[in-house]
Design a protein around this nucleic acid. Structure first.
Lengths: 223, 223
DNA sequence: CTTCTCCTCAAGTAACTTCTTGAATAGATG
DNA sequence: CATCTATTCAAGAAGTTACTTGAGGAGAAG
């Protein structure tokens, strides 16, 4: 057996990256950053932590090479270093959901019962986008919509949904989407819309998966 | 923002899996287990740790759903829960090597200078296997060979290589492989063989990648 | 230059991790 | 049944991590 010390150091190096994802708040940060770049204060709000603590977590992610920064005026914007990082997160998510016994229960506790939420696949939505026979709403925070969204979608952050529904004909079908399979905004939106006796479905997964699947997107078009 | 506590718990769940890979010794265990099942004592030897400590690390991996066990007589064999886990490890490895600045140096410290080690691609090796114009040697520990190896390869653990070379014609080309891109056995083998003025190359990556690429394998055929 | 804003750093505490040692246990073997 | 063996558990020392609070610093704006 070769040089044990050097071997340990190398594998500790790989573990360094895993360790960076080894904290729920940092995983949340990666999930949010997969939607597009954000500045620290916003990120702190998203993960429900102090700015100082959020900054610290971002430093840990940066030290592992998972995020980079860009300054624009007074603000510092964080972004994922590359699509690889997003890919690592989706693989981690999928392994956890397949192999970690407790995860299903945790998901139910957070998301509630999804059995009555109908989904629409990316391919079907892509087809129906052409017809114009449905309305697509992006229920993520506005900053994420601004950073990139499904082409033709309208930004309707979840707290504005009720208002928005008032101006909508009752016979039109709505598709809601948000960050990914474990994002609760779209579920809440679909439940609310269905309670108002309209037809609503949730897009399978979320925006990053739509983008990765090379379906049409656009950015910075506020409604 | 929905239920912060439930959301935290869910993302802590994902982080649980990352945390399980957040230790160099556990990553080594996964790398070894990607070769095939092994029992605790062997695993302890591979990662250079006490049996008790190795057992503890295996419990951590098991709690995250990454490994399962099987009893055979007096021994307990650990294995990766599924190919997904191996996939997660390869993605982690690739992200680390691309994005973690220090990793290159750590790899050089462990593996040495690879610039003079010629590689052979999986596809080329698969083609040349048919001709019989080269010899393929598996320089991993014998237990890993027994658990599965490239079809037609011969088990030559690295400490037996010198002996084995004596009985070999000098004009035959040798291809050596081991566990993966960061495994040092095949490098050492190629260097040693070249010092003896024979032609030798290292297979790109290692056995798990060969198997994943659906090239021919076999098991339990000791030479 | 001064002030303001956004972000990072430092210090401190409580809770976890890793690894060691020695004892305990479950199951196989005789 | 008793014994043996491979593995796990338990307790403790040394180090690390997460989060809080308050101070510090870099750049923008006035």
């Amino acid at each position: 057996m070769g040089n044990r010390q050097a071997k340990n150091a190398l594998f500790d190096g790989f573990a360094e990256v895993a360790k960076a994802l080894g904290n729920g708040r940092r995983v949340e940060l990666v999930d949010v950053l997969a939607q597009g770049e954000r500045h620290v204060e916003e990120l702190a709000g998203e993960i429900g932590q102090s700015v100082a603590n959020t900054s610290h977590h971002l430093q840990v992610l940066a030290a592992a090479g998972l995020v980079t920064t860009r300054r624009d005026g007074n603000r510092i914007y964080y972004q994922l270093t590359s699509g690889d990082v997003e890919h690592l997160w989706t693989v981690l998510r999928s392994v956890a959901s397949t192999h970690l016994d407790d995860l299903e229960q945790l998901a139910v506790d957070y998301l509630g019962n999804r059995s009555r939420l109908e989904e629409i696949s990316r391919d079907e939505l892509a087809r129906r986008l052409e017809d114009g026979t449905l309305i697509v709403i992006d229920v993520r925070p506005e900053a994420e919509y601004a950073a990139g969204h499904i082409r033709g979608a309208r930004s309707v952050p979840i707290d504005q949904l009720s208002n928005m529904l008032r101006g909508l004909p009752t016979d039109v079908e709505v598709v809601a989407y948000c960050r990914g399979p474990y994002c609760v905004f779209a579920d809440d939106a679909v439940r609310l819309i269905r309670r108002r006796s309209r037809k609503a479905r949730r897009l399978q997964d979320g925006y990053p998966e739509w983008r990765t699947a090379q379906h049409p997107t656009e950015a910075n078009l506020l409604p």
